[in-house]
Design a protein around this nucleic acid. Structure first.
Lengths: 360, 360
DNA sequence: AAAAACTCTGTAAACGTTTACGGCGTTTGG
DNA sequence: CCAAACGCCGTAAACGTTTACAGAGTTTTT
């Protein structure tokens, strides 16, 4: 592979020094004649700046890393989708790390900041351990954490508010007249499982509804098990009239099982999901879902990082993104949902260019 | 920010030369005593290799770029999901480019290979223009193209086979006794639109069915417009008994409209989508869909690139990924679909850790 | 015992930029 | 007409590595 031209090649051909070439290429004040010669030579040679050499000297890579648990996870994708354009607009490239939700991998990513291949990092750790905090405090580049971090940790931080999110949903159901509101949750030893469970209890209490253990069923965060959990709950509490599901997949499982059991949604049982993924709009009936603002969190994180990159020593900031309730047919009925959103029938689609890019 | 330690710092502390330090760090043969001293110094200082300086010297960045049209597109995501682990296992980082399906951006990415910030590129262009080919032939790093490329282009290439994919679907519908099979397509001036339209026609001909223009309706690739197209088709050809949709979103729109029109799916009208996205499994009835193997294409592309990086001058290769039909309820009925997949009710969920990573 | 071979290490150059510094030639001011 | 000021430009050092080469010291061979 032919060695590409360098500023040396250009300098030779233009009959000037490499310093002049560099100055011209960087737009520093230079005599017109010199500019012309250098530009001509550069054009003829098809010169492109070597980013690596540039980074070595300038100590800036113009790259930022984003470490997510799982590339397939819609919540992280929503973040990615917002992070990408923000960084791109600011002239940064995006390096993607998938940590498979393994703490050791996350710590390895933090540690690898020492290699200085990126200027900063946005990370959304599954859960923050002592080891995370230690490595974090020694990190050799600015980091923004998406997710909760112990009080007093000196790091830029973006959080969701799932507590308020759950409350929004419960209040919504209450407002629709539901009084026997069940909860289908994931394992309580996960961060979201624990906080969503607690939030459910609190929301009921604030409304003056009794907390009834029979109304809570634990499974995992997937569709099949979610369905089974709902089946178990229906058996135990036949008069349940609403289901708060800890994520959208569980809610889809709920729809499966309710349909099989001959219960109408939302007339007999209203269903609410969480995360407001694409799936919520695709299902039938479409799913009311609590959005925890993944997209907004991604955007906020990117902006925090950019700000920090320009202004290294300001105080760490905390941004909390408010949740939002996307009301759809599974609680409000098709008619009501449509009115709320003010869209014509069938216009619920998100964007999708699927199939555009395939090789036919 | 404190300047991190370099091999110079280590050399000083260990009382050896930087060459020795480098040798030790790279595992080149060295006296035990020296190894010990260097390792000790490196540990004490918390030394981490500077990837940029390393790249400059070695002319290898251990980074690979993936350029996709749109981060939000499930088809590209499926690719990304497979590409990531393959590269990671081989010790490469992934740089993500989103080109917004703008040809100029794609060309810019190709051009920027000259900056040498990556060792290679996987690109899935919306459509390959003359300008693409020109820039491609002058690219300063190996490229793998996902998608079709003119005969004779010297580049590693991975393709889907949407022709066979459409045929699979049409044959399936024919096998179910359907004879009035409509097609809802996107614009014919897009690559997938054109090829899927042609494939539909051919598949009918091979089965001895007449090609009836009335059975074809063009819209775009989104849900709302897809629904409208279906409505128009129903009006014109009330006795249509199956719909071949050019992607899953169109198919979702079809389900919306058929439901509103009181037609049962699949009893009255069978529906097939394309791309086999997550949405297909989430909808109700779940959607039979043609998978064009996005995941497999991504994997193949990553492997081709890695191979090329190790073996620069072999002949370009072409890999064609066969399509697959995922039969679900929208053609076969719930019962049949379940039998075909041999899964219990409600176990249709894909993976999803949504909600795991959020800050609660 | 001298030469040859071998092992280990240090010096220095190179990768492709950016940039501080000083020199030279021209303009300006007194 | 000389000095000061200024505008351009070239030389060289630096960023943090890797690595060719040669020198020093040790071991083997003849």
């Amino acid at each position: 592979m032919a060695q590409g031209p360098t500023i040396n090649t250009i300098a030779e051909r233009a009959g000037v020094s490499i310093a002049s070439v560099s100055r011209v290429l960087n737009g520093l004040p230079t005599r017109q004649e010199t500019v012309r010669k250098v530009m001509a030579a550069a054009d003829e040679l098809g010169y492109v700046r070597n980013a690596v050499a540039r980074s070595l000297k300038s100590r800036r890579t113009h790259q930022v890393a984003f470490a997510m648990a799982d590339v397939g996870n819609p919540a992280y994708l929503a973040m990615l989708r917002e992070i990408q354009p923000v960084l791109k607009a600011a002239g940064y490239r995006l390096v993607l790390h998938s940590t498979d939700a393994v703490a050791a991998d996350e710590i390895e990513v933090l540690h690898s900041l020492g290699e200085r291949y990126v200027d900063g990092l946005i990370m959304s750790p599954l859960r923050v351990t002592e080891a995370h905090l230690e490595t974090l405090s020694a990190a050799r580049a600015p980091v923004v954490i998406i997710g909760s971090v112990p009080e007093g940790t000196r790091v830029d931080n973006v959080r969701a508010d799932s507590r308020t999110g759950v409350k929004l949903a419960i209040d919504h159901l209450y407002g629709l007249g539901r009084r026997r509101i069940g909860m289908i949750n994931g394992p309580l030893d996960t961060v979201p499982g624990a906080s969503r469970g607690a939030a459910y209890r609190e929301a009921l209490e604030e409304l003056g509804l009794p907390y009834d253990e029979d109304l809570v069923q634990i499974g995992d965060f997937y569709r099949a098990e979610g369905g089974r959990a709902v089946a178990a709950l229906l058996e135990r509490v036949p008069d349940v009239d609403a289901l708060m599901c800890a994520n959208d997949l569980i809610a889809l499982g709920a729809l499966d099982v309710l349909r099989a059991a001959g219960r109408r949604v939302p007339e007999d049982v209203a269903v609410v999901g969480m995360d407001d993924t694409d799936l919520a709009a695709a299902s039938w009936p479409s799913l009311t879902s609590v959005s925890l603002g993944s997209a907004e969190r991604g955007k906020a994180a990117a902006e925090l990082l950019l700000d920090r990159l320009q202004n290294g020593d300001r105080e760490p900031r905390l941004v909390t993104v408010p949740p939002r309730l996307s009301v759809r047919a599974s609680t409000a009925g098709e008619q009501a949902a449509r009115t709320a959103r003010n869209v014509p029938p069938g216009a619920d689609a998100g964007r999708d260019a699927a199939g555009k890019g395939d090789g036919a």
